[in-house]
Amino acid sequence: MGEWVRAVRGGVTAISVLDLVPVRSDQTTADAVAATLALARVADEVGARRYWLAEHHNMPAVAATNPPLLMALVAAATSRVRVGSGGVMLPNHSPLVIAEQVALLEAAYPGRVDVGIGRAPGSDPVTSHLLRRGTTGDAVDTFDDDVATLAALVGRDGVDVRVGSSTFALRATPRAVSAPQLWLLGSSTYSAQLAGRLGLPYVFAHHFAGRGTSEAVALYRRTFVPSEALAEPRTIAVANVAVAGSEAEARRLVLPQVRTMWRLRSGTPLEPQELVEDAEASPLPAAAGELLAGMTASWIVGDPAHAAAEVRDLAARLGTDEIMVQPVAGAVRGTPADRSPAREATLRLLADALA
């Protein structure tokens, strides 16, 4: 179909995809990964620009624990779409390890690799402690330096490290001919300013922040300093999206995701994502209404025409270069365990409506 790019008020906006590799109550981890690869092939087919994988740990409803490994699987299953992390939570990892992983991916799939970097832990405190091998201190404190180190390491020339009186050449891979593209992710003014100061492209997590998107994007543009990597500001906003034949059906299909978010925000124990019928059979408490209304206000849920209009409006309001869609439609009973038809339909219906 060619790249999924549409005119928005005289500009050009691309559509990309974010995937957390959700695990439903009727799925194994293997099923969830198979469903992700099927969804990635749909994204490739309809012309999405990017397909990014998140990093979350120790969550019953999320199998996206290792973005570079998932990126390799998705890149092998597709032919054109860029693959990336959305994102690697850098405080959990050594910058050198991540640089080595994505440099190999770039060598295998040149010009198709993105590295979205996040500052949040993406896990509970115990898991974070184990990921960091029990090191003391807050790894977030070194985030600025770690981002700069990673940016240098993934470059073709690597970095020179002073050890005593000697200089030690350090490269993520021996003979790189291209480098993956680094992006900074965030949901705050801190990340916006850091991306601007480092001259990196910026992704705002509109899908879970909901508020402050315009302010953060404007701050990023005001503080942007051109770099070797990027001459002008470049932005993506992420939105939760579910598209179906009717608005009523789309709202029905998001019930499992809404219930997962409720559990996450209310401290209720997390479970694999429910099927739609199970979510319908067990309504949330009345007290959840106000929290859910605020939580889902920024979601794009509806029929194709409504969803396309909302995507165009969001892109125009923010003046963003891309909208990254997280398909949040759930599954009904009887759905093949290795597929996510409602998520696939969201991408197909939205692509057709934007054409």
Rank of each mutant, 00 (worst) to 15 (best):
G11W: 11
V325A: 02
I117R: 02
S188C: 04
G86E: 02
A179D: 00
P110Q: 08
G199D: 02
A64E: 00
V177K: 12
M89W: 06
P256H: 12
H206W: 11
D124E: 15
W183P: 03
P67W: 03
A76S: 15
T136I: 05
A61D: 09
A216E: 00
V163L: 12
R24T: 09
T260N: 14
L53A: 10
L18C: 12
R133Q: 12
V97N: 06
V5Y: 03
V301K: 06
V328N: 09
T346F: 00
A242V: 11
L20W: 08
A250V: 09
A30M: 07
V17L: 07
E100H: 07
L291T: 15
V328A: 05
V225D: 03
G267N: 01
E249L: 15
A329D: 02
V62C: 09
R132Q: 12
W4L: 15
Q193F: 05
A329R: 05
A151H: 13
S94Y: 07
G86V: 04
R348N: 00
P233D: 05
F168Q: 13
W299C: 10
R162I: 14
V42Q: 03
R112E: 11
L291N: 05
P68T: 04
A345C: 10
G302V: 11
R49V: 08
A172R: 00
S178W: 05
P22Y: 01
L18M: 12
T268S: 14
E3F: 06
G155V: 09
A48L: 06
D26I: 05
P67N: 07
A30W: 04
L69G: 06
